[in-house]
Design a protein around this nucleic acid. Structure first.
Lengths: 221, 221
DNA sequence: AAACATTTGTCCGTATGTATA
DNA sequence: ATATACATACGGACAAATGTT
């Protein structure tokens, strides 16, 4: 009988990484609220590690813009400003538009097929009114285009912006913005543009598609 | 006799920050070469601090993409790939274009004046064949537009990209690419577009202006 | 105004894990 | 394959700095 290869914990996770992901989660989902003071000794005790990995994680979170360290004073979760959401989407739009332009020149038939499958799954989730699943597929769709553009800087920046956008959604709106079938149709147009290698159209359509959630947001009371 | 206010070191700089800026400089100017192994104990001795602030600085440098840490193995300066320069400029172009579009809507007369002064200084430096000074003013000109767009994400990303571009220039070309008077004329057109609040023109002109150094680079043997 | 208390910043020792002989 | 050497990751203690009583 063949012994199954042990796929348990393929990556040895360090205490710093565990602290980092846990703190990220807590800040994004609002467990750690904006402007909350972070005491590294407390966090270390809560996470069952020493202060060193916690401090290291906090410094990375500062670079990511989730916490702000006031040297010699204290460390706090960054506050969020309602008007930032517009700036987040504007920046993400510019980067995704660039990614679409580049992807239009690099994309291969198999990847077009992948996009169509993702969008089909997205449409099914909308019809089934499974909002969270729909949001997942929507993100995957856009992320795939970004990855296809084969630009590590864009990938990194977009991932950071997505994280901040997610925090906004959690903290301001307790429930996510609904996705509509119109978005799925726009996705289809985007795929067509990529297939025709029409970089300009792809860029324009992506910007339009990304502006939707922001418009939804601005409609709120 | 009035005692002069003491303007010495207004910010108390921590050992970590000192280590960070020094290592950044060394990596960007090529003192620490691509793929060079970094031993934190050695660096600590060289910088006159302990290993902790050095480790912290190295972790920040990893996020910035200047070093790569292989957990449990070693830490190395990231290698440089010739084709990355195109991706750097593409990303920077998209962000600067966005900044120009936004700045066109927000800019005030005094800021237009600032841009004209910077560009005049830029033109003077070119005429005087002071290449380094010209590059400085060129960067200041573009950075001012980015700052005018009042978007912290764009500011942060652009600053990171500029850093990488600077490293490329140092490591690959030992001397900087020359700036021409054509660039100064383009700057003037950009300013005019911003003054007319013509976001589209400003965006297009900025992209065009940024593509110049890349074209110069591609002409090289 | 001065000493206290709390928290951050730094140092260094130790252990765990990786590469080499 | 085992053992050795070495570098990294973590822990705990000390020192410096800030705000407070």
């Amino acid at each position: 009988m063949p012994i199954p290869t042990n796929y348990e914990t393929p990556v040895r996770t360090s205490a710093k990484d565990r602290a980092l992901s846990q703190l990220q989660k807590w800040i994004i989902d609002g467990t750690l609220q904006p402007d909350e003071k972070l005491n590294d000794a407390e966090l270390a005790a809560a996470l069952g590690v020493s202060r060193t990995p916690v401090r290291e994680a906090l410094q990375l979170l500062e670079v990511q813009g989730l916490v702000q360290m006031y040297p010699g004073k204290d460390t706090r979760v960054t506050t969020i400003d309602k008007e930032m959401i517009g700036k987040l989407y504007a920046t993400l739009g510019a980067l995704h538009a660039l990614a679409a332009e580049t992807a239009a020149q690099l994309i291969e038939p198999g990847q077009i097929e992948q996009l169509r499958e993702l969008n089909a799954a997205f449409a099914r989730a909308i019809k089934a009114k499974d909002i969270y699943q729909a949001l997942e597929y929507d993100e995957e769709f856009h992320n795939l285009i970004v990855e296809l553009s084969d630009n590590p800087y864009t990938v990194s920046f977009c991932s950071s912006l997505q994280m901040h956008i997610r925090r906004f959604k959690f903290v301001f709106l307790k429930q996510p913005l609904g996705q509509t079938m119109a978005a799925a149709e726009e996705h289809e147009q985007i795929i067509d543009a990529l297939e025709k290698r029409d970089a300009q159209a792809a860029s324009r359509l992506i910007k339009q598609n990304l502006s939707r959630p922001l418009e939804e947001y601005n409609k709120l009371p």
